[in-house]
Write a protein that binds this DNA or RNA. Structure first.
Length: 214
DNA sequence: AAAACGGGGGC
DNA sequence: GCCCCAGTTTT
């Protein structure tokens, strides 16, 4: 890692060293698996996605499924009924309102119940190649710890980061920052000893030794 | 702005 | 048992 602590340099370092990808590119699979990922660990998300798509591989088949039937399939992977209902409802809306296709604007995507700004931006970036920044708890926390922003909400963070990070890095840095947050810059007990960019970090100067986990 | 929601897993 | 998790919705 160079001496450069600029947001773009840190972003590139994260992109180089931390990968995080659910593996899907088809719009509807990205949308569905991202809904599955909401407030849920990746291991559970990946398992549930595989089970779901192995039985219901298309928008049409999901739309035709009974929510209970779909729930029975994914319930062992940390999922719950509301999410199964959201997914079936989402597939039906895609079919009825969007001609069976996933829309490619933030307004249309967030009009679907269960799809917020973060999920919509993931789809826009991964499936449609648009420059979008999906701010989740990891991105929000890490951006504030590093001192790049001083924000209270993910919405503020998204707006502030767009002025700090080069647009072509928005997509790639997203998953990398999440993985960095899972492995190193964790919500509690961050592994600052193992962190190669601690000298660039505001939080590292404030955190007490006993709060750092080996 | 804060609480509700939701269930498996780590501790 | 309690707290957390690639959030979203409701109060």
């Amino acid at each position: 890692m160079s001496e450069d602590c600029s947001p773009d340099a840190i972003s590139c370092w994260m992109i180089e060293n931390f990968k995080h990808d659910h593996g899907y590119r088809e719009p509807f699979k990205v949308l569905i698996s991202t809904i599955l990922s909401q407030r849920t660990r990746d291991e559970n998300t990946d398992e549930a996605s595989r089970k779901l798509f192995s039985v219901f591989p298309t928008v049409e088949s999901i739309a035709a499924a009974k929510p209970e039937e779909l729930y029975g399939l994914i319930m062992r992977s940390g999922m719950y009924r509301q999410k199964a209902e959201r997914i079936v409802n989402c597939a039906r809306i895609l079919l009825e309102k969007f001609d069976g296709r996933v829309p490619d604007t933030i307004e249309e995507l967030t009009s679907i119940p269960g799809v917020g700004r973060k999920t919509a931006n993931i789809v826009l970036n991964i499936s449609f190649g648009k420059e979008a920044l999906a701010v989740d708890t990891h991105v929000h926390r890490i951006s504030n710890r590093l001192g790049w922003v001083k924000t209270k909400t993910p919405g503020e963070t998204e707006f502030a980061l767009m002025k700090i990070i080069s647009p072509h890095l928005w997509g790639p840095v997203n998953g990398s920052m999440v993985e960095f947050g899972r492995q190193i810059c964790r919500p509690v007990g961050p592994r600052c000893r193992d962190c190669a960019i601690s000298r660039c970090c505001d939080y590292y100067g404030r955190i007490s030794k006993e709060d750092i986990r080996q």
